[in-house]
C-alpha cells in the first residue's frame, strides 16, 4: 500500500503534478476555482501551489491574471519524456534501406540532451533499449550526441562513468579525445562497449542549420564491424534524404 495522508492537504509534489494535468486537460485559461473544484483542494493551498508553479514558470498566468496555461519550463520534461513520432515517409525510406542489408538499422533522436528511440529495427530489436539512453557514453548514438552537445550541455552525470562491459570507456579524458575525433569525422562507433559481442556505427542526421538532431545506427555482431562499415556511404546518403522528413 502506498502512503496517503488522511486529507488531501498540502502533500506537495504530487498535487503540483495534478494541477499541471488539470491545466493541460482544461487548456489555456483554466481558473484557480476550476482547479480547486476539480481536485477538491483547500483554496489557500491551491493558490500557494499555483503561485509556486507560476514562479518556476511551469505555469503562466493569462493576461487577465485569472487563468493559467502550461509554462515553457515544462518543455524540458515533456520533450524528453514524449516518444518521438517518425513520419511514414521517413519510415518507408528506412524500411527500404533495411531490406538492402543484413544489419540492424535504428533511428535514434536527440531530444533535450537525451536519446530517444524513434524507429527500432523490427527484425533485429535493440539489445539494451533502456541502458542505451541511460548511458550515452557507451553507445555510438550517445557518443554522437555528446560530441554534438559539447562540454556545456553535457548530460553525463557527475560521478564515475558506468562500466557496462570491459570495453566501455570510463576515463573522461579518453572520452573527450574520442568525441573530438567524432566531431572531426562526423560518425561514431562502438565495439563491445554497450554489450559484449555487439558493435554499432552511428551517422548524424543534420538539421538545415547543420546541427545534429538524430542518429542513424547500424548495429551487428562485433566481429562483423568492418562489414557494417562498408555501408557507411549508403547510410550517409540515407541520412540526407531522411532529414527533411524529420526536421
Amino acid at each position: 500500500m502506498t502512503y496517503r495522508p488522511g486529507n488531501p492537504g498540502p502533500s506537495t509534489a504530487s498535487n503540483s503534478l495534478r494541477i499541471l494535468e488539470i491545466v493541460a486537460r482544461f487548456g489555456t485559461g483554466t481558473t484557480a476555482k476550476e482547479i480547486t473544484d476539480a481536485l477538491q483542494m483547500p483554496p489557500a493551498t491551491a493558490y500557494r501551489m499555483l503561485n509556486a508553479l507560476v514562479g518556476d514558470e511551469y505555469l503562466a498566468r493569462t493576461s487577465d491574471l485569472r487563468g493559467f496555461a502550461l509554462g515553457h519550463a515544462l518543455s524540458g520534461l515533456i520533450t524528453a519524456a514524449t516518444p518521438p513520432t517518425v513520419p511514414t515517409a521517413a519510415r518507408i525510406l528506412i524500411e527500404e534501406f533495411r531490406s538492402g542489408n543484413r544489419f540492424a538499422v535504428h533511428l535514434i533522436m536527440f531530444r533535450n540532451a537525451s536519446l530517444r528511440i524513434a524507429d527500432e529495427d523490427p527484425d533485429y530489436p535493440l539489445q539494451s533499449p533502456f541502458e542505451m539512453p541511460r548511458y550515452p557514453h557507451a553507445s555510438a548514438a550517445g557518443k554522437l550526441m555528446l560530441a554534438e552537445l559539447g562540454h556545456s550541455a553535457s548530460p553525463l552525470p557527475g560521478g564515475p562513468l558506468m562500466k557496462l562491459t570491459q570495453h566501455t570507456i570510463t576515463d573522461r579524458g579518453q572520452l573527450e579525445e574520442q568525441l573530438a575525433e567524432i566531431r572531426f569525422k562526423g560518425e561514431a562507433s562502438e565495439i563491445n562497449e554497450l554489450a559484449q559481442g555487439s558493435a554499432s556505427l552511428a551517422l548524424p542526421v543534420r538539421l538545415s542549420d547543420g546541427s545534429v538532431g538524430a542518429a542513424l545506427c547500424l548495429s551487428g555482431p562485433a566481429e562483423r564491424f568492418t562489414a557494417i562499415c562498408e555501408h557507411t556511404e549508403a547510410a550517409r546518403e540515407l541520412t540526407s534524404r531522411l532529414a527533411p522528413f524529420l526536421f
Binding site: T28, E57, A60, R61, T62, S63, A69, L70, G71, H72, L74, S75, G76, I78, T79, A80, F110, R111, N112, A113, L149, A153, S211
Partner: peptide
C-alpha cells in the same frame, strides 16, 4: 508585462 507566447509550453524549442 503580460505573458507572451514564448512563456508558454512548448515555448522555445529544447535542443
Amino acid at each position: 508585462d503580460e505573458t507572451r507566447e514564448i512563456d508558454l509550453f512548448p515555448g522555445k524549442p529544447v535542443p
